[in-house]
Amino acid sequence: MSVLLDHLPVIWQGLVVTLQLTVASFLGAAVLGVLVTAMRVSPVGVLRALGTAYVEAFQNLPLLVLLVLAFFGLPEIGIKAEPLVTAIVVISIYEAAYIAEALRSGVNSVGKGQGEAARALGLTFRQSLWYVILPQALRTVVQPLGNIIIALTMNTLLAGAISVVDLTEEAKRINLVEAQPIPIFVGVGLIYALIASGVGFVTGRLERRLVMVR
């Protein structure tokens, strides 16, 4: 492991990039995921179809392909962005499909009467969703959302393919110099495991806190 300690500053740099990718992509995916969920349960047929198409499209395409396409394709149509920003946007769009799917199963688990009561009180569809349905849906999908965040954390390493130097990319570079793949990647693996168990811990706590008496 001492090989890692020798390169601590770059490992740290890589970790910071990985955390940036994770946090920013999750926030983007959360906002987009809620929007797509709203579309999928909307009373308007066209919006429902668009929402479904979104989820189908992005769940059925590999993230790596999307990243590479965006990295090389966007400049072609005149959009230039930092690789890090491109990666965050693409990962957000991709993971939003998974978040939307989890949220929709949560929405389905909320009794039909809750929405009816909200509408009967004069709340609009948006208000019913925001104040009544989503808060309850969220409580039932804390654990699946945690799993999505963990998967997202692991997926961030694909950003290395479009020249973002994250934790894994730093590890590869160190290995080019040191040629000690086992200790380097065991160490880096442990760092990812630590992030994942942190996420698992927080969602576990959240789930217990938010449990509803029914």
Partner: peptide, 25 residues
């Protein structure tokens, strides 16, 4: 038929359900 007008109408019409439908959270 729908939208804001309908929401406004419903605001003036109270409804009580068989299964209460209080917001659980």
């Amino acid at each position: 038929l729908e939208g804001r007008e309908l929401a406004r109408l419903r605001a003036d019409v109270g409804m009580v359900f068989q299964s209460f439908n209080l917001f659980q959270h």
